[in-house]
């Protein structure tokens, strides 16, 4: 049982939902990322999702693309991010999952990645362009290392695939709220609830909803029908807004606290 599993166990006992905050690692710089993570832990964030910047983020909307691009300009690499997590671990035990496109991990070596990440204190990985069919080796290595592999369910996922995705997932299952890329949305389909209930029938693994969630009201609604919510673009957008300002960490943390307070 790693930190993610323990967190969900703890939340379940308290009958609470998880708040997962995404930020792009290394944007605006590694020091700020570290401060944000530590600060988020104090304002009700349960799990941190750290984005590994990639040159071709094809599942991301403009906000995360921009943050990713700026981080790369500063020379952020997977290795530097792993080192950052190791530093954070000296202070905090908040569960951390990396979000990375497949190529940087593949090039680094899947086995080497899982082992190094685990050693540095990372608890799992989310890879938006790696479906379970192509992830067999990764899953085997991850299992051996008690390292979570989070896979996606989408509104377009058909029944026969659902079971495979559920089986391949550990830590939690990432339920994509809308067909599309990451980014703030005003409206969500009313069919999400029914779909989650259907998946709940075949698994006890936690299901968290992400993509497009940006307001306290949306956090409230979505956390009512799931085990947790993931907010990314809305937070990164706040960081972009306050880039270069001394009170960035305080301002962004305040924004996040408004979201976490609405969790059901």
């Amino acid at each position: 049982m790693n930190r993610i599993d323990e967190k969900f166990k703890e939340l379940k006992a308290k009958k609470k939902k998880a708040f997962i905050a995404f930020i792009t690692a290394g944007y605006p710089d590694l020091k700020t990322t570290k401060e944000l993570v530590l600060s988020f832990a104090r304002v009700g964030v349960d799990i941190i999702e750290l984005g590994v910047p990639f040159s071709d983020p094809l599942a991301d909307g403009p906000t995360i693309q921009t943050a990713s691009y700026k981080a790369l300009q500063k020379g952020i690499t997977l290795e530097k991010i792993l080192k950052l997590v190791a530093e954070i671990r000296e202070i905090s035990q908040i569960p951390i999952v990396l979000m990375s496109y497949y190529n940087p991990i593949f090039y680094y070596g899947e086995k080497r990645f899982v082992e190094c990440a685990k050693k540095c204190g990372v608890d799992g990985v989310i890879i938006p362009d790696l479906p379970p069919e192509e992830a067999k080796n990764l899953i085997v290595t991850a299992k051996k290392n008690d390292f979570s592999t989070v896979f996606f369910l989408s509104p377009t996922t058909k029944k026969p695939r659902i079971k495979n995705i559920v089986n391949a997932s550990s830590g939690f299952i990432y339920f994509v709220s809308v067909s599309g890329v990451t980014g703030v949305r005003n409206q969500f389909s009313s069919s999400i609830k029914g779909k989650i209930i259907a998946v709940k029938k075949i698994t006890k693994k936690p299901i968290c909803i992400g993509f497009g969630i940006s307001t306290p009201q949306q956090v409230k609604t979505m956390s009512q029908i799931s085990d947790g919510v993931i907010v990314g673009s809305a937070i990164v957008s706040e960081i972009l807004k306050h880039e270069g300002r001394k009170d960035l960490v305080r301002k962004v943390s305040f924004f996040v606290s408004q979201l976490t307070s609405e969790l059901s």
Partner: peptide, 8 residues
């Protein structure tokens, strides 16, 4: 190697 939304 694509996002889940495209798999089906």
């Amino acid at each position: 190697f694509v996002p889940e939304t495209l798999m089906s």
